[in-house]
Amino acid sequence: MNIAIFSFAHMHAYSYARSLKDLPGVTLKVVADDDVERGRQAAETFGARYVRDYQDALKEPLDAVIVTSENSRHAEMTVAALQAGLHVLCEKPIATRIEDGHRMVQAAHDAKKLLQMAFPMRYNIPAARLKQQLDQGRLGRILLMNGTNHGKNPGGWFIDPVLAGGGAVMDHTVHIVDLMRWYTGSEVREVYAEIDTRFHPIGIDDTGLLTLEFENGVIAALDPSWSRPQRSFPTWGDVTLEVVGTEGVTHLDAFAQHLVLYKEIAGQAQHLGWGDDPDLRMLESFIACIRAGTPPLASGHDGLQATQVALACYESARLARPVKISQ
């Protein structure tokens, strides 16, 4: 199976490319990147052919494309790949505008090809175990959730409003909202968001505290802020979720499986994960879905729903009042 990666703008591209190397019968054939130096280097590192324009890559004998460009470019690349008859794994958030997201989902439907959203948290073993326990009714009925997806200021295009479509709230809301939707089987009905720029001297939001209500009545809070100290915090951030049910409470700390390393020359403590790699499991599942012709665990529709919540949060913060999401 031949794969292309469209742009190494998003750092997850490196992890996905490494994962592809570990999958039998899968080859990373082409790297397309309009940043010549970055693209050439990545192509060389992973043994792929480099092209500057992704349109040229579409002429190659490919099976699927991984889109890891700047958020605002997901739509054009994804739609072009689907229309060329290729399956797509698209980095989150699906798009920066909801119309773009709809176009992508429609294109997958028309081309009868897979559009999977890169929601690796569904492949994080502790998060998946919690899903299994909830499905077994262990916590009873879910009543409330409180989650975090903290991070650091990623810089680069992530803090460019046009390319990223938003800051921390755009970047980090969707992972946890996706887990919450997966766990509850319900959609977000209403959001209230306080959003600001309070940690870094940047022209985009790095601070968000969100309050959500689901259609089934579950209430939830979420902190997607880039609030972890840049140098001294021992890891990139976190994914945590408290789930309160009628029969009990579970705390998920999805990256708790780590060693702590204090390295003299690093000048800071570091967490070194030893748990299963969710990116590898996600890529494995993407390939398996293509081979078996089965729908992905997280689809374009899921990406659209999560991004709709992030966009509604910006709207709520602008208006300083709760905003309803119409399905």
Binding site: Q133, L139, G248, D253, A256, L259, Y262
Partner: peptide, 20 residues
């Protein structure tokens, strides 16, 4: 001489559940 690692399985792990 160049670094230290530690691990304790008793630290709060990835899933911690309190059931009624």
């Amino acid at each position: 001489a160049d670094g230290l690692i530690h691990f304790d399985s008793a630290d709060k792990g990835p899933i911690h559940t309190l059931l009624r």
